[in-house]
Design a protein around this nucleic acid. Structure first.
Length: 256
DNA sequence: GTCCCGGGAGCGGTTACATCA
DNA sequence: GTTGATGTAACCGCTCCCGGG
């Protein structure tokens, strides 16, 4: 395929190679002037396009050459077997380096996505906490009118109950009903079933428990904003539905 | 069967040089 | 023409594996 003398790649180095190429100890035993001469001989050392192409093709099929194939390839390309071996070594190193870069890029992309999701969830949580605080304030102003969520349920509380004029609060049976704006939860500003399932996901709650919790939130149960009152959740069996203590910790971390 | 030794091969890191902007 | 960055062939030192004694 290629004549040994066709390429000037390793003119003087090739001449040396016949006796020294396969022995690094031979090289290291040379005087410094001799080494310099060898280094200077690297002048036109780049392999030709044809040689590179053949080497690349072979590398695609196998990244490690069998000794027999190495000799054959070296013969075909007019190179020393050691040159072929070194080319494969360097190629493997470069390929590995590129692979690491690709892997890093993928991991970084995944991390960025997760970080972005985390930030948006954090904002959503903050927004919900603010809403809870507002509701709690309203409830405290109103006194004991909303002490019992059964009572609220019995009057058909709907989070989306709005007055005809579009205001968020509307009287039901002569008592004010509360609605609130969660703009992040869709155009109509109410918590949808979809939202419930989303929260169930990251709170680790099952749908039933989460629904219960959301109802309490929707109903403006002030106990939710006061940890000392969370005992009622246990009484309701809500926290009992936590699969394990780590989920409980997760729940606590989320709201704290 | 086990240990030791030498040689071959691969790998990570480095050097020397060519090329290009 | 000079310079810094980059790519690459070749090397060095080390480790691992394997066969022979």
């Amino acid at each position: 395929m290629f004549d040994a003398g066709e390429f000037s790649t390793s003119s003087s180095a090739a001449a040396l190679s016949a006796e020294c190429f396969s022995s690094s100890s031979c090289f290291s035993s040379l005087s410094s002037s001799k080494k310099k001469k060898i280094n200077n001989s690297r002048n036109t050392r780049r392999f030709s396009d044809e040689q590179i192409k053949s080497l690349e093709t072979m590398f695609e099929t196998e990244t490690k050459l069998e000794p027999r194939k190495k000799l054959q390839l070296a013969r075909e390309l007019g190179l020393q077997p050691r040159q072929v071996a070194i080319w494969f070594q360097n190629k493997r190193a470069r390929w590995k380096s590129k692979q690491l870069e690709r892997d890093y890029s993928i991991l970084k992309s995944n991390y960025d996505n997760l970080a972005s999701q985390y930030e948006s969830l954090k904002k959503e949580k903050q927004s919900l906490l603010i809403q809870l605080q507002k509701l709690n304030d309203v409830l405290q102003k109103e006194g004991g009118k909303y002490c019992c969520r059964q009572e609220i349920n019995s009057i058909g509380f709907e989070p989306d109950n709005r007055g005809d004029d579009g205001t968020k609060n509307k009287e039901i049976d002569g008592r004010p009903s509360l609605s609130f704006d969660l703009s992040e939860h869709g155009a109509n500003g109410v918590i949808s079933d979809d939202d419930s399932s989303i929260k169930a996901d990251y709170l680790g709650l099952d749908e039933g428990a989460d629904h219960h919790l959301l109802k309490m939130v929707e109903a403006g149960d002030s106990s939710l904003t006061s940890p000392e009152n969370w005992g009622c959740l246990e009484e309701d069996g809500l926290l009992d539905q936590q699969p394990n203590s780590s989920s409980y910790d997760q729940w606590w971390d989320f709201w704290s």
